[in-house]
């Protein structure tokens, strides 16, 4: 026995004996699910295994990735942001309207980002200083932003600014494959968010608040700043996602992105972030968005299934993940 253990472990032994820390299990499960979806799909449908399909998944869901990143910050503190779908719609509308009025596209982009950030700031201040439930405060934000969109224009406004079109179709070629820079921007947002959450005091305070807000306060952490900050980030991300969405769809419309906040929440939860806060990673959210996108892709590849199956499968997945998380956290206690 001792002779066996005295020998240095071979690489395979180490792989074999590796057990991931429990906090990574949800993310690994999501990743496995994603790989599984593509594996099964690849066997059934030709062309699904083409890497371009995978890249397209990123391109088509760039806005949802950015939206999910902002939502992850909020959910990690134990809050929720229901306003983001409406902020996306408002962003498309502000972009379309200002461009129609002849603003410079850069000024237009700045206006959109500023609006989303300020909305997030207002909701954050309400939530922290007036102690209003995030659910209610952001529900008010949802109605407000949607209403403002109608106020700007009831009709759909198309975007035909040349700079915007160039941005929208800006493409980077990687050998035989191509990726739009909107997708690269989304990945950059994920990377920055992951860095902020893991390696800055702000990020760690986000987790601390999710674990126990009163403890975080007694530990002398900057609770107020951080709590308001996550809603500012979510508002900014929603505005950025709105820009990406308007580049994707090239119009401003008050009917855009209805219910998109729920897609974002679903992606965050499927990505392994606990709704009660304190546990989760933005990489999980990225995987969550990709899983949702993969379901859509699979169903469109199949061609025989109606699109409502997307909703049904999403619902089942969401439920499964929440139940699995429940068991995982209960076992630890």
């Amino acid at each position: 026995m001792s002779t066996v253990t005295a020998r240095p472990d071979s690489a395979w032994d180490r792989v074999k004996d590796f057990t991931p820390p429990p906090r990574y299990i949800p993310i690994i499960a999501t990743f496995a699910l994603f790989v599984g979806l593509f594996g099964v799909g690849g066997m059934r449908y030709d062309g699904l295994t083409d890497p371009q399909v995978l890249i397209s998944l990123l391109i088509d869901n760039a806005f949802l990735i950015v939206l999910g990143v902002g939502m992850t910050f909020v959910i990690l503190t134990g809050g929720i942001d229901l306003s983001v779908g409406s902020v996306v719609a408002l962003s498309t509308m502000i972009a379309a309207k200002t461009l129609q009025m002849g603003w410079s596209p850069y000024l237009s982009i700045a206006a959109v980002l500023l609006t989303g950030t300020v909305l997030g700031l207002l909701m954050g201040l309400l939530i922290h200083y007036f102690d209003i439930q995030p659910f209610i405060a952001t529900l008010a934000g949802l109605f407000l932003a949607r209403g403002l969109t109608y106020l700007i224009s009831v009709e759909s406004i198309s975007i035909n600014n040349s700079t915007f079109s160039e941005l929208a179709f800006g493409t980077v070629y990687l050998g035989d494959y191509y990726i739009r820079w909107t997708a690269l921007l989304a990945l950059a947002v994920v990377a920055i968010a992951a860095y902020v959450l893991a390696r800055t005091r702000f990020g760690r305070t986000v987790y601390a608040i999710g674990g126990s807000e009163s403890s975080a306060m007694l530990m002398g952490l900057r609770v107020a700043f951080t709590k308001v900050g996550v809603y500012v980030i979510s508002g900014f991300c929603a505005a950025l996602a709105g820009l990406l969405f308007s580049l994707y769809i090239l119009s401003g419309n008050s009917l855009h992105a209805i219910g998109m906040e729920l897609d974002a929440i679903a992606a965050v939860v499927i990505g392994g972030t606990l709704l009660t806060g304190g546990r989760g990673y933005v990489v999980g959210t990225l995987l969550g968005v990709l899983v949702l996108g993969a379901i859509k892709t699979l169903i469109s590849f199949d061609g025989t299934l109606s699109s409502y199956w997307i909703r049904i499968i999403t619902g089942v997945l969401l439920l499964t993940f929440v139940v699995v998380q429940r068991f995982a956290t209960r076992r630890q206690q």
Partner: peptide
């Protein structure tokens, strides 16, 4: 105990002054 249960021991000791 006014600590944060979801973070590591080291983080709990040094949170805010990492």
């Amino acid at each position: 105990v006014n600590l944060v249960p979801n973070l590591t021991v080291a983080e709990n000791m040094l949170l805010g002054r990492e």
